Simulated assay, not measured.
Amino acid sequence: MTLVDAATPDGVSARVTVATVWHPPVSSLFVPDGVRVEATATSRTVLR
């Protein structure tokens, strides 16, 4: 897994993006290099 980006766009929330390459369990001619999978999560904390 690779960290692609980590930022605080507005100073209150945090956004993190990670990516990896998934390889099918059985060798496939259609995706020999695998499939890139990317996920982004945003979290916001509000202190009162």
Rank of each mutant, 00 (worst) to 15 (best):
M1W: 04
V31W: 14
E38Y: 02
P24E: 08
P32N: 02
R48S: 10
S28D: 09
T17M: 11
T17A: 09
D5L: 12
H23M: 07
R36Y: 02
V21T: 14
R48K: 12
T8P: 08
P24K: 07
A6L: 07
P24Q: 06
V46R: 09
R44F: 02
V16N: 04
T17H: 04
H23W: 11
T17F: 07
R15F: 05
V31Q: 12
P32H: 00
T45E: 14
V16T: 08
S28R: 03
S28W: 01
M1S: 13
R15P: 05
D5K: 10
R44Y: 11
A41L: 10
L29M: 14
V18G: 07
F30P: 02
R15Y: 01
T2E: 15
A39T: 05
W22R: 02
R36M: 05
A7I: 07
W22M: 06
D10G: 02
T20N: 04
G11K: 00
T45S: 05
V18Q: 06
P9E: 00
V21C: 04
V37N: 15
F30K: 13
V31C: 07
R48H: 14
R15T: 12
S13V: 00
V26Q: 12
V46Q: 05
V18R: 11
D5V: 12
S27T: 07
A7L: 09
R48D: 13
T40H: 11
T20I: 00
V37C: 09
R44S: 14
V18A: 09
S13T: 13
R44K: 12
E38R: 06
A14Q: 08
T20F: 11
V26T: 11
V12S: 11
R44T: 15
L47N: 08
T20G: 10
D10A: 08
S27C: 01
A14K: 12
E38V: 12
R36K: 02
P9G: 04
A41I: 10
R15W: 08
D33K: 15
W22Y: 06
T45F: 13
V35I: 07
A19Q: 01
T20K: 09
V46Y: 09
L47M: 09
M1R: 14
T20P: 03
A6G: 14
V21W: 07
A39Q: 13
A6S: 12
T42P: 03
S28I: 00
V26G: 09
L47I: 08
V37A: 03
S28P: 04
T40D: 14
S43K: 13
A19L: 04
H23N: 05
P25R: 05
V21P: 11
S13W: 03
H23L: 02
A14R: 13
G34C: 03
A39R: 08
A19D: 06
V4A: 13
W22V: 04
V12C: 05
V18C: 14
D33G: 04
V35A: 13
V37M: 13
T17G: 08
D5H: 01
G34Y: 01
S43C: 15
T17I: 00
T17V: 12
F30N: 12
W22Q: 06
D10V: 05
R36W: 07
V16G: 15
P24H: 02
H23R: 07
D10H: 03
V4G: 01
P25N: 06
T42C: 03
D10T: 03
V35H: 10
